[in-house]
Lab assay of single mutants.
Amino acid sequence: KLLSSIEQACDICRLKKLKCSKEKPKCAKCLKNNWECRYSPKTKRSPLTRAHLTEVESRLERLE
């Protein structure tokens, strides 16, 4: 599967780190437990900047 097509777990399953069936409108866990089942939009991760990478590398060197 391509990364862009990976389905996201519902908010509660993601928060509780449960295996989500990803069914809509309610996944199996939410249906069974009568929880409100919501699927928040995916958040875009910002790409690493060179400055951040350099900072992490220098912190790693100090720890070694």
Rank of each mutant, 00 (worst) to 15 (best):
K1D: 09
K1S: 15
K1L: 13
L2Y: 15
L2Q: 14
L2F: 08
L3G: 11
S4K: 05
S5Y: 10
S5Q: 08
E7F: 11
E7T: 09
Q8I: 07
A9W: 00
A9Y: 01
A9N: 03
C10V: 02
C10D: 01
D11K: 02
D11G: 03
D11E: 04
I12A: 10
I12P: 12
I12C: 10
C13Y: 06
C13F: 00
C13A: 01
R14E: 01
L15F: 12
K16M: 00
K17Y: 06
K17E: 02
K17L: 03
L18Y: 10
L18M: 15
L18C: 08
K19H: 06
K19F: 00
K19L: 05
K19Q: 06
K19D: 03
K19N: 05
K22I: 01
K22M: 07
K22F: 05
E23F: 07
K24H: 14
K24N: 15
P25M: 05
P25G: 09
P25R: 04
K26Y: 12
K26Q: 15
C27L: 01
A28V: 12
A28M: 11
A28Y: 11
K29V: 06
K29C: 07
C30S: 02
C30V: 05
C30E: 04
C30W: 05
L31Q: 11
L31E: 12
K32N: 12
N33Q: 13
N33C: 13
N33K: 10
N33S: 14
N33T: 10
N33H: 12
N33D: 09
N34R: 12
W35Y: 15
W35C: 09
E36C: 15
E36V: 14
R38E: 15
Y39L: 05
Y39H: 06
Y39E: 06
S40F: 05
S40Y: 06
S40A: 10
S40G: 09
S40P: 00
P41E: 11
P41M: 07
T43S: 12
T43F: 08
T43V: 10
K44C: 11
P47F: 00
P47I: 01
L48C: 05
L48S: 03
L48E: 00
L48P: 04
T49P: 00
T49F: 04
T49N: 00
R50A: 00
R50N: 00
R50P: 02
R50F: 02
A51G: 08
L53K: 04
L53E: 08
E55K: 10
E55L: 10
E55N: 12
V56D: 06
V56T: 10
V56I: 07
E57A: 01
S58R: 09
S58W: 13
S58I: 15
R59A: 09
R59P: 03
L60I: 11
L60P: 02
L60V: 15
L60T: 06
E61T: 15
E61Q: 12
R62G: 06
R62E: 05
E64W: 09
E64S: 14
E64T: 14
E64N: 07
